[in-house]
């Protein structure tokens, strides 16, 4: 069963269409990357999933239960980390987690153990100060802890790494990876290397629409044709190569096959060997998430 099912949701603010058909689904125990440029509608989608925003159309189901505005999915299903989490500065981390746990109706003993467990997970167990002195990264970590307090089936993180330094980013990604054992994670981002590091499935959002949704493997399959880049030792040889391979392009001294099958590659190498053209470098281009992203956003 899918933990989260989003079907064709739409939302306009005034005359501005923010979401125009967003659909994707998240299976159990999966880290799902929700990718899009700034302003593509990621936060709006997440707020809709949480029941914090009224949609103009479409359906959202969390664990098989319909989500509607003002009616947050049953407690225990979703944990949420907002993009800029705001807490009560006059509390310390443990007090805040206790408040969160009490709201979800956890028992006193369970809550006490869970607080200790989570504070250790996010590395705040030694922190005795009040939250008002916390750095951005510490707040982000406390944000994950509060989102996980009642062992939700789905953890939603809105740009958890965007504002952090490399060390803070790595910490957060490690925590999310660790959380995967117990819950599904949806996290939105525009940092593609983060997605490649931990995600199993992704959806691309562009202009308020999901332009692609599937697993990372599917992306690699979709782009079986890999690019080929050839740099010659003598530039004057380029003419001869281009004559033989009409679909090759010359781009500033480098000869590029946008898409080259293995057969094409072999032909090229045979030609170069037969003509005794000296080669500086012949490089294969593996299509990555970034190419995919550029392709879907049409750049």
């Amino acid at each position: 069963m899918n933990v989260l099912e989003v079907k064709e949701i739409k939302k306009s603010f005034g005359s501005k269409k923010v979401l125009d058909g967003v659909s994707f689904s998240v299976p159990e125990n999966c880290v799902f990357g929700f990718i899009g440029r700034n302003g593509a509608g990621k936060t709006t989608t997440m707020r809709a999933v949480l029941g914090l925003l009224e949609t103009d159309g479409g359906e959202i189901e969390v664990c098989g239960e319909r989500v509607s505005y003002g009616k947050t999915p049953k407690s225990g299903y979703i944990g949420y980390l907002p993009d800029v989490p705001e807490f009560y500065g006059y509390m310390n981390a443990r007090e805040y987690l206790t408040l969160c746990g009490e709201i979800t109706g956890m028992s006193r003993n369970d809550l006490k153990n869970r607080c200790g467990e989570l504070l250790e997970l996010v590395g705040l167990d030694k922190e005795k100060h009040r939250i008002k002195g916390y750095s951005r990264g510490m707040k982000q970590r406390l944000g994950i802890a509060q989102a996980l307090i009642n062992r939700p089936k789905l953890l939603i993180c809105d740009e958890p790494t965007s504002a952090l330094d490399p060390v803070g980013r790595k910490d957060i990604l490690d925590i999310i990876s660790a959380a995967k054992e117990q819950t599904s994670v949806v996290f939105s981002t525009h940092i593609l290397s983060d997605v490649e590091r931990i995600c199993g499935r992704v959806a691309f959002l562009e202009g308020g629409r999901t332009v692609f949704s599937g697993s990372i493997e599917e992306i690699h399959e979709r782009q079986t044709d890999t690019g080929l880049e050839l740099t010659l030792k003598r530039t004057e040889d380029a003419e001869r190569v281009l004559e033989a391979f009409s679909d090759m392009e010359n781009s500033g001294g480098r000869l590029i096959f946008k898409k080259a099958s293995d057969k094409k590659a072999a032909e090229l190498m045979a030609f170069l060997a037969a003509q005794q053209i000296p080669v500086m470098r012949l490089e294969r281009h593996e299509a990555d998430l970034e190419d995919m992203f550029m392709e879907v956003v049409g750049k």
């Binding site: 914090l52 944990g79 807490f87 009560y88 969160c100 709201i103 979800t104 109706g105 009642n150």
Partner: peptide
């Protein structure tokens, strides 16, 4: 500040 709490029910 209410967002995390409201989403917890």
């Amino acid at each position: 500040t209410l967002v995390p709490l409201i989403t917890k029910g």
